[in-house]
Write a protein that binds this DNA or RNA. Structure first.
Lengths: 210, 210
DNA sequence: CTCCTTTCGTAACGCCGTTATGAAACAGCG
DNA sequence: CGCTGTTTCATAACGGCGTTACGAAAGGAG
């Protein structure tokens, strides 16, 4: 008996597409409920019935960016050399951030950055972190870093610790770069970044002293 | 002949005080021109005649935070051991960020974060970076790291590079921590952070291969 | 006392996020 | 086939925002 629904999943996708495009273009600041609704050919109330409000729409944009991010990181296939794979993963991490700076910012540097991440859920279970954690685990299991652990071997705790360390370095570098705070011209930064990862890697992967 | 000025430097300071308090309390999102003006006992037009607008007011808040930040970092006095001093500087860096998270965010994670930093001015000449750069230079001149440079010694380029590496790690860690993305409970983070700095330090300070 | 210049508080404009409201669209029933 | 009831959505309204235009206020000059 009711009037047929127009606020369905298809419209939700279209709204999310438009919102993603707007954010990619002008950042979160440029996203308005009215504008996104108009671009999708509907009214602003659709955003409220399908998402809940502007903030929730932004969270959905962040979640979608996180999916693409995880996919991007997962697409780097292993070469058999764990250390090289980990380095490639770090490079892919930065490549995504530079290719989609606004998407990266929505995930991490948004007001209340936890929005894009499952509320209260441990970060270690997010796909993005898992990819990194797995690569670190592989590097700790064999290769040069494994020797430092000797017969005790590296456990999950070691992988979480090392992955977080590497993540902090990559995240910090990328944030500084996106904010224009690196003291080097753009054409030097690729090599500088790789050099930083190479320099910090062994120490960050090594077991804690005693 | 004119009507006496009320929009003077004293009012500017009061506005900046109120704006800083509002941002410290509720983040940049909570800052409105009308509210800050009312708190300072004036009208919103004062913000426009003294700063230029909301964005410029936020930039001034960021600049003041940067001053406090630089002062905070500069207050860590040398102990004679360059490596220990550098570690203490890293600890002070994080302590400020945790004590004034919104101030830290206004400096770095604000929309158009360059606002708080001199437009176009090289980052290497900012007080905050200089303090870090000097500490790194000292660590490269004597102590364990100096040996790796051998007879060639470390120059300004080496100090800039190493300082940026350390900065990226500290910044990334702090941003992850402020965003609630570290996989450890708060009471473990102090030690984890120091461990990360210790682990990455030697590699980040070392000269580039070949 | 009057005029003129400068200055600032007030009010207006357009836009925002959000919410209330009434028209629209269909199923079942007389 | 028309009426009714129910659900759904577009429209309009509300309060608040950043910003700007405007007119009142204030004091020196004549």
């Amino acid at each position: 008996m009711p009037r047929p629904r127009v606020h369905d999943d298809a419209l939700r996708d279209r709204l999310l597409d438009e919102a993603t495009a707007v954010v990619a273009e002008g950042g979160t600041r440029a996203l308005t409920v009215r504008d996104v609704a108009a671009r999708a050919g509907t009214s602003s109330s659709a955003v409220y019935s399908l998402f809940g409000g502007r903030e929730a729409l932004l969270a959905a944009v962040g979640a979608r960016a996180a999916e693409r991010f995880a996919g991007h990181l997962g697409s780097t296939r292993g070469t058999g050399d764990p250390a090289a794979d980990l380095l490639a993963l770090g490079v892919a991490y930065r490549r995504f951030a530079l290719a989609e700076p606004q998407g990266y910012r929505v995930m991490f540097a948004s007001p209340g950055a936890g929005a894009a991440h499952p509320a209260g859920g441990p970060v270690t279970e997010e796909p993005t972190f898992r990819v990194l954690q797995d690569a670190v685990r592989a590097a700790l299991a064999e290769g040069p870093a494994a020797d430092a652990y000797g017969t005790r071997g590296a456990d999950a705790e070691d992988a979480t610790r090392a992955a977080t360390h590497v993540w902090a370095l990559a995240h910090g570098w990328v944030m500084l770069e996106l904010d224009g705070l690196l003291p080097w011209p753009p054409d030097e930064r690729d090599a500088r970044y790789v050099a930083a990862l190479r320099a910090a890697g062994p120490g960050l992967l090594a077991p804690p002293p005693v």
